[in-house]
């Protein structure tokens, strides 16, 4: 149980990426939240993933609307 909750950065980054593509289990969610509350490195990584998500969404939406084939000004 404790092993499931206290994970290395390597495992936690894997979960942070996997939650983009699947729903994490309850223990996994607790593990991520606890880890992020004490780990600045993985918190930064999470911010990077969030930025990439927003960037892809924005890229997608301008790929589908009229106007210059360029990102919004």
């Amino acid at each position: 149980m404790m092993r499931l909750i206290f994970q290395s950065c390597r495992k936690v980054t894997r979960l942070i990426l996997e939650r983009e593509d699947r729903r994490l289990g309850p223990l996994e969610r607790v593990a991520v939240r606890l880890h992020l509350s004490v780990c600045q490195m993985c918190t930064r990584f999470t911010g990077q993933v969030r930025l990439m998500n927003r960037a892809m969404a924005q890229w997608k939406s301008y790929s589908e609307t009229d106007g210059p084939d360029d990102p919004p000004r």
Binding site: S8, C9, M41, F45
Partner: peptide, 11 residues
């Protein structure tokens, strides 16, 4: 050991 080799950059 599963730790970051380098601090991820602040974006």
């Amino acid at each position: 050991d599963g730790h970051w080799r380098e601090m991820p950059a602040d974006w």
